[in-house]
Amino acid sequence: MAETQLTNEEFFTQLAGLFSKSQEKQHGSIFLTQKRFTYSADSAPSSPVKVADDPLWDLHPENPLPVIVRATNGKSKEKRAGKVKLSTVVQPDALETFYARYAEVCKAGMQALKKRDRSKRKKDKAKKRKTGGEGEKKG
């Protein structure tokens, strides 16, 4: 991999940048991937070692493993020059805080999704008032 791993914090800042860029353009995709991180740069093999005679070798690792999270804007082929690739490794004890921040960044970044339709609820309320508080309960 050409890119070096980012720290979790750097990853979030750059991911926010990626989201705002797509928001400006009103076009494009962002891919976010998460996967168990089993690669180690050292000569020591990664911790769940594949055991040939046990098909369930990876189900119960003795130590919790980190998770790698990647983000790209999906530019490939002739547009590869504009490709942005981000990746970060999340340690198992940092998962909770990471996903809390991740949710914040994604919620802030995915602005083009449909907002909750408030107008309909208002209409329902008005209808309810007319019928004297009867009718099905919403929300």
Binding site: K35, P66, P92, F98, A103
Partner: peptide, 18 residues
């Protein structure tokens, strides 16, 4: 979005082996 990211986090725990 919030709920889905939360479930990604829970699945992430499974990935980590927690």
């Amino acid at each position: 979005v919030g709920r889905l990211i939360a479930s990604l986090g829970k699945l992430g725990r499974g990935m980590a082996g927690l």
